[in-house]
Design a protein around this nucleic acid. Structure first.
Lengths: 117, 117
DNA sequence: TTCATATGACAGAAATTTCTTACACGTGAA
DNA sequence: TTCACGTGTAAGAAATTTCTGTCATATGAA
């Protein structure tokens, strides 16, 4: 499966999710080392668990990673995360196409903002 | 020429530049309608000129657009902008590779942040 | 019971980004 | 001279993002 987007808004969210050094590192670590659970990954990367938790939620919201709650052999509940099959190809025409479906930051219906009101 | 990046930091900046609805619209408009000068583009998009100016600077900083100051036939100085040949192909391995050269948000040299200090 | 492990969530501080509202300068036409 | 058009920049408000600190819950082992 390939991670994509259907609207301009979704593309912006997807890009925003990747446009952060820590989140990029999280995705990269999961892509390289494979699936991992939150607390362990937090120690691995050297970040507090609440912070990692927040970033993972944001990454999962745009479909870059998926999480599943599992039980370890000794009964502990572990939340495992792994990356999805990321595949973004961005070109000028791709971006132009996506921009058509932007709902946020639309052109003002009325006249443009005046420079010296 | 193809817009790319050489370090993870640059990739983050590039993504951050695109991860904004207004900037995405700016790039899309320039890609579709061709080159344009700032004041005219501001009216076209329906945004104040200083705001557009700021966003264009950020887009130019990462190499997504280029600007050139030219003189119109009647002697007015016009700053024209146009998009470069954007071409970003992002996959899991691409991101993993880029993350290696991240300088910001590095893993802490010491022990990981404690949960209950 | 107490300790160490795991999960999730929330409030508020801190930092950054976004946007407005000015200011200053220059040229050509009325 | 005054107006309309272009350029650039800078200060501060407003909004958002990022991060810390803390609380609450549950399980297995000592």
């Amino acid at each position: 499966m390939t991670t994509g987007w259907s609207t301009g808004d979704e593309l912006v969210e997807m890009l925003a999710a990747l446009a952060n050094p820590l989140r990029l590192r999280i995705v990269a670590t999961l892509a390289t080392s494979g699936r991992d659970y939150v607390s362990h990954l937090a120690r691995e990367i050297g970040v507090s668990r609440p912070l990692l938790h927040m970033h993972l939620q944001r990454l999962e919201a745009v479909g870059l990673v998926v999480g599943s709650l599992e039980l370890s052999p000794d009964g502990k509940a572990l939340k495992f995360y792994e990356v999805t099959d990321v595949n973004l190809h961005l070109t000028a025409s791709t971006l132009a196409e996506a921009a058509k479906t932007l709902t946020r930051s639309n052109p003002t219906p009325g006249p443009a903002p005046k420079e010296h009101p």
